[in-house]
Design a protein around this nucleic acid. Structure first.
Lengths: 414, 414
DNA sequence: AGGGGTTAGGAAAGGGGCTTTATAAAGTCA
DNA sequence: TGACTTTATAAAGCCCCTTTCCTAACCCCT
């Protein structure tokens, strides 16, 4: 709520680093043009990042008469970031360099019985240990670990307030993890992780006003408003998946009926298929991934059932995304996460049409609907981005304010 | 998008004036406590407002040992603001003093045939002239005129881009009005006017995160995010009324089917009544106001049909407001405008229950749903508030930057 | 090889904001 | 009247960002 001039600095620092990561190497001039900041400000920010060893100078641009531009690039070996994506059935962990390239990857299966926090924490600890040794990084260079866990989280205290899939209530996840993991920990949920990933590295980069729609087993919408993630008053904004789209519709695991998720989440899509063609061979009962992949293949080969299922799904999706377009009037709506990635452009094309049927023409005309360009697990990337943001956050304060004087002779120092 | 330290100043100026208007008289100390600003900053802001004659010093507080606190209050006679609410069938104009008391009021009917911009402009000009003479204000003290017109507007250029009720396209409304009105003009639409009214003077005051639901003939949602109105990329955010709540539902005037508006707007409520009890005497065909008033009376007297209609309406409203709660996770949802005012607390009670059935428990627990406390036409008040904001905006810049040097001797001045 | 011309980048100055600290002002109470 | 308390203003300090000036570095041409 309380805004200070320091926030401006932080936002600009983010902006500059984002730009460098996106286009590396680059010059101070380009950064100034891209961010709209003055050359002087860019120079000081670049200086800060150089001091932090997050970027390095990598030579000069060809000159056409005049002093050549110095080039800076991400210092890939300047640190490592770890992203943890905890889901119902697995734990994905990826270790990134500062250019956000994946250096190591680990996956642990979480079996249906393992619902205790300690069990999940064990998997995370094992996977994090694995990626660190795999990458051969000396521990000191790990800047932080971002953790994405489903449900409602309190990021300040690191508590998983409520995780529906395991019926967790107020689990102090960060405390538990810090027993095993010595790096700074940052907790949030996958919805916001995916949104941040798109904001930094994906299709929402540079837009002050975007909606990131996550299509996976669960669905949700990350809201980028004014260039930053909107979290709401209790950090639970974006729960679009449990908006009612059909009154008295399908029963949702949240207990309500007709939620968006029950029609466009992976299980919902399976149900759409089953209702349309109960014995289709596209249907792999109990296996969401296989079914979605089969649908994707079917669409490419022109299978009429697959096409119809996707169209049907896009119809619900269209109405629900139209809500977002009408409400937020965003520049761009990004479709992200594995279902979107699997069904790809054909889905997006159908969705565009469906949204256009439901949204008001004016906001619709101002909005682009695009597929996420992020090739890997966006929740991992987003979680790692939380760690990156955390590392940048602590730059600002020059020195910790001390309550007791440090020098013994302070009393006669002046 | 580009934030500067000046924006902070502007926001603080708003905040301080808001606080003074809300609680007048008040002291600098109280203001500092309420806004979280330092005493010094409050003092300079108060000084600015005193210089502007928007507030005055009105004596001192009782002292209990120590210098007594100076009290400041809104200088009611320091200026006047005019709010214009243009609707399909009428033009309301109210003239306010700086404490936002209504000093004069005028209303013109817009007849069904009068759809030309010139005709509407004529009504506005007449009504504005009327309130100015009624109030006996010398023209110089009118700080500005806010105009609310339905549909899509471009506030920067003062163009009504699209008004569905009269099929206006790109009407340069401010240009037309300035032929008759010499005061500064500020254009926006009723949705945002109502939201700003609630933000400054109503139930959303002080919350960084609120949704203002407008329930009238049309319906919409004003979004207050981070203490300011969210406008979206093309100033059309908040068009919640045309979200699809029933797939293939009732035909809406926007051309779609099943829009929220068709179930909870005044005409929608009439339809709810007709469907439930076609020959109810509560129904006044063709008269929305009379029908809604009849329903309100019926509820107070325990008429089962009225109760059932409101419950039915609240059901749709509940699902649609639950969307907003899930998406934004606001502190407060305010029900405003004339339908909400007419149906009052009984409606709110039903809505609370219905929203609770549809929204997720966590965000729901963080959200209050309340009735607007604003007794008059909130669109007029909000429009006047635009003028107030405009008047405050221009305080900051010390002097207008001039492109040509003013002094003739500039060439040898250094 | 040695000057122009040109572009980059840093340092200094300037303007805006907010806060903390010091000082003046205006009371109460003994 | 003097001591103490509280308020309000003034001064100084710190954090932003931008503009302006100056030096560094390079090309090209003579």
């Amino acid at each position: 709520m309380k805004r200070t001039s320091r926030d401006i600095r932080t936002a600009n620092r983010y902006e500059v680093l984002r730009q460098i990561i996106a286009e590396s190497p680059t010059s101070r001039q380009e950064l100034a043009a891209a961010t709209g900041l003055s050359l002087a400000t860019v120079a000081t920010l670049v200086g800060e990042l150089l001091d932090l060893r997050m970027i390095t100078e990598v030579g000069f641009e060809e000159s056409a008469g005049g002093r050549p531009r110095g080039l800076v690039a991400v210092n890939a070996s300047g640190g490592a970031l770890i992203g943890v994506d905890i889901a119902e059935t697995y734990v994905h962990v990826e270790l990134f360099d500062l250019a956000l390239n994946v250096l190591a990857r680990a996956e642990e299966d979480v079996h249906p019985g393992e619902s205790l926090p300690e069990q999940v924490v064990g998997h995370v600890a094992a996977a994090v240990g694995s990626v660190v040794t795999q990458a051969g990084i000396e521990g000191a260079r790990v800047l932080g670990v971002g953790v994405s866990v489903p449900g409602q989280v309190d990021r300040a205290t690191g508590i998983s307030e409520y995780a529906p899939n395991w019926d967790w209530h107020d689990v102090p996840l960060v405390d538990l993890l810090s027993e095993y993991i010595a790096y700074p920990l940052y907790l949030d949920n996958p919805l916001r992780a995916v949104a941040v990933a798109e904001l930094w590295f994906g299709a929402a980069r540079g837009s002050g006003n975007a909606v990131v729609v996550t299509l996976g087993t669960g669905v949700g919408a990350g809201l980028v408003l004014g260039g930053a993630l909107h979290r709401g008053v209790s950090n639970s904004a974006g729960e679009w998946g449990h908006n009612t789209i059909v009154l008295d519709g399908r029963l949702c695991r949240c207990g309500n009926h007709g939620c968006v998720e029950t029609y466009v989440g992976a299980p919902g899509i399976m149900l759409n298929l089953r209702e349309l063609s109960p014995d289709s061979e596209l249907l792999h009962p109990g296996d969401q991934t296989a079914t979605v992949d089969a649908l994707a293949r079917g669409m490419r080969t022109g299978d009429p059932v697959a096409i119809e299922v996707v169209r049907h799904t896009a119809r619900y999706l269209g109405a629900s995304i139209a809500h977002l377009v009408n409400l937020f009037n965003p520049e761009v709506v990004v479709l992200s996460s594995w279902v979107a990635a699997a069904l790809g452009e054909p889905l997006v094309a159908e969705v565009r049409e469906a949204v256009a049927r439901h949204a008001l023409p004016r906001p619709m005309a101002a909005t682009e609907i695009v597929l996420s360009p992020i090739p890997t697990d966006p929740a991992c990337l987003g979680a790692a981005t939380f760690a990156l943001e955390g590392a940048l956050q602590s730059v600002g304060q020059r020195s910790v304010k001390r309550t007791t004087p440090a020098r013994p002779k302070a009393h006669n120092s002046r």
